[in-house]
Design a binder for these strands. Structure first.
Length: 403
DNA sequence: AGTCCACAGGAAGGGCAGGCGA
DNA sequence: TCGCCTGCCCTTCCTGTGGACT
């Protein structure tokens, strides 16, 4: 592209009529004025937390619901309102919010406690101290405060599955040792059966109250999208049926409102990029593809090098044998070959098996444990990715390792 | 009914990088 | 500087198992 072209591209971009009015309204972080179809949950949570305004510690609460059912949104909404009222009444009220799934931020006990301590003004080094020490510092910082502290732990199921539930026990016990501060825990979980993983002591003290967030159905999703659309798009930017299509697709994915909003946003972006004046159904289809593609490619990019090589090996074996699925053993044989070709140190079968299982959990490949009787038990590994994604992944790995 | 394959996957722990506090 | 910490990736050793085969 010549430099003149670049200039005209930019000015074209500026002159171009956008289908968007305020794109932020389609962002999951964006807080609408009116939250639809969650009145019950808002009321429940508000009445559970209300005692905080009188300086009493609210019951611990547990919020359940799959992704995109509005849990985080409502926690933020209710606690913000609560803080505003508390401030007007000059009551001491603090809310700490942590997402336990954020990689390298709060995905271990140490990091989570560190993040919590940081939110109440205690500086904690990112590593180096004993977990016990971080706990003490956090405790002392709490001790120095007064009033009620609500600790919201988002995606708490992920952390408990990883490090166990001991830290929750410690957190729930803190109230016994604190003088002026009252702590209340608000757990948010994507996994409805999550309590089964927990010790019964923790279970009973933590889920004094429970609020369930059912998935949105297609009709509810449509209304949610409609109200956001009014804010996000210019008038008449959407073709008939676009909203219904997004809602239907997302309703299929466990009533995930986040997915619905993403679909609509990406469809809008694609329409805009192709100079279309109208967002049409075909843009939604394209958006669906693009979201999946981006997710997989991004996930793969983040993987450590050995994991990438294993994935690459799986793709190679499938291609060579021209079959739909492979067994772990075949992958491992080929893997060793590739490693020696590339002069990369090879891992044990145990580890490769573990990496395959991780890739499965990330949704990059499908691995099903099957028994072939006399011929042993193994995983049947298949890849349900389009050719486009496959070649993208292959390029990614080949570039990196000069294959 | 028993055997045995080809792994799955749990448990424990090693080695290293990055970092702290004294 | 030293001793100690966590987190990550990995190995070693191990027990478990569905079902075709004998």
């Amino acid at each position: 592209m010549g430099q003149g072209d670049l200039k005209s591209m930019f000015s074209n971009y500026l002159e171009q009529d956008s289908v968007f009015d305020n794109k932020d309204a389609l962002n999951t972080q964006w807080k609408p004025d009116n939250i639809l179809h969650r009145d019950q949950q808002i009321d429940d949570l508000a009445s559970i937390l209300a005692p905080a305004l009188k300086g009493n510690d609210p019951s611990n609460v547990f919020l359940y619901g799959s992704v995109g059912t509005g849990k985080s949104l409502i926690v933020k909404h209710v606690t913000e309102e609560l803080k505003t009222v508390a401030k007007n009444e000059s009551k001491d009220l603090n809310v700490l919010y942590i997402n336990c799934k954020m990689k390298n931020v709060a995905d271990t006990e140490y990091r989570m406690l560190g993040k919590l301590a940081e939110q109440i003004g205690e500086d904690v080094p990112s590593t180096g101290l004993a977990t016990e020490e971080i706990y003490n510092r956090f405790f002392e910082a709490l001790q120095d405060m007064s009033g009620v502290v609500i600790i919201a732990l988002d995606e708490i199921d992920a952390l408990v599955k990883k490090v166990g539930d001991e830290f929750l026990y410690n957190l729930t016990r803190m109230n016994d040792d604190l003088d002026d501060t009252k702590v209340s825990i608000l757990g948010i979980s994507n996994d409805l059966n999550f309590t089964e993983y927990m010790d019964s002591r923790v279970k009973s003290s933590l889920s004094e109250e429970e609020i369930i967030f059912p998935p949105y159905n297609a009709i509810e999703l449509r209304e949610i999208l409609k109200s956001r659309t009014e804010e996000a798009f210019v008038e008449d930017a959407l073709d008939d049926g676009v909203i219904s299509k997004c809602s239907a697709l997302a309703a299929h994915e466990h009533g995930d409102a986040r997915r619905a909003l993403d679909l609509l946003r990406v469809a809008g972006e694609l329409a805009e990029r192709s100079d279309a004046e109208l967002v049409e159904n075909r843009h939604v289809d394209m958006a669906q593809d693009k979201i999946e593609r981006d997710r997989v490619v991004e996930t793969v990019k983040e993987q450590p090098k050995q994991s990438k090589i294993v994935l690459y090996t799986v793709l190679q074996v499938l291609e060579e044998e021209d079959s739909e699925e492979v067994a772990t053993g075949d992958v491992y044989t080929k893997y060793k070959e590739i490693c020696s070709d590339l002069d990369i140190s090879e891992l044990t079968q145990r580890r490769v098996s573990g990496l395959i299982s991780e890739l499965d959990m990330l949704g990059v490949i499908n691995a099903k444990v099957i028994s072939k009787g006399r011929y042993g038990r193994t995983r049947e590994i298949s890849v349900g990715l389009s050719d486009e994604i496959r070649s993208k992944i292959e390029n990614l790995v080949e570039e990196k390792f000069y294959i």
